[in-house]
Amino acid sequence: MLAEFLQYLFTGITIGATYALVALGFTLIYNASHVINFAQGEFLMIGGMATVSLMGMGLPMPIAIILAVILAGILGVALQRLAIAPARQASVVTLIIITIGASIFIRGVAQLVWGKEYHVMPSFGSDQPVRIGGAVMHSQSIWVLLIASILVVLLVLFFTRTLIGKAILATSMNKDAARLVGIRTQLVLMLAFMLSALIGSMAGIAVAPITFTSYDIGIMLGLKGFVAAAMGGLGSGVGAVVGGITLGIVEAMTAGYISSDYKDAVAFSMILLVLFFMPRGMFGSRVVERV
């Protein structure tokens, strides 16, 4: 009985850690511009696919990972320079729509370059699952959790302790005022896109050994990650992690105790409830817009 519960819990944490890592990527760009970057899932895909294909060329895993992350960073800058910057006068909604277009474009190019097949990435550590109290957990899940927690801490420090982090927050609160005090807002935005691409690709690489990777993996993971981010309160790193793990655990518990047919339905109704009673999410800022 306890073993069963533990198994569902671990399953939930495994799925949830994946969502959490994806959700983190949304936080940065949202903090900088209030834009929800729907191409975030594509950064994940680039991370995973580039690592797999570089490893296929015979590079050792750590080098392949570093190169893949750099590639994603370049892509993030390119996305901001080529797609977002030219539309800088446009409203947030327009920018969000641009990111959707960009995601379709990136996916199309990836499909041409890497084909449509699923690829395997080896686990970072051993392939042996970890056994605790009669339940098992994928050893890669521990890596995912570890990477997610390190990234959260780094993000919190970045936003509260560094000048650049504060500049990003200032830009999101009031672009004109930020510019008046000497912040180069376009540069800040570019930086936000680059960092978010870096985080996204790291997430993609960390989860690839569990989920496999393919040119369209970003659609599903990106969407679930967005849901987790919205639930935790967009813009909050801690919220993204809590939101992701809650979502994962609810899905797993429903599949285990009620029926696998209802797991998505229950998870999504829970999001409705959270957003109904806490419109800014579980950890969203309580700041009221100043008029």
Binding site: T11, L221, A255, G256
Partner: peptide
């Protein structure tokens, strides 16, 4: 991405 809950059942 994970079916361990269903398999446990």
């Amino acid at each position: 991405t994970d079916m361990t809950a269903q398999l446990t059942r």
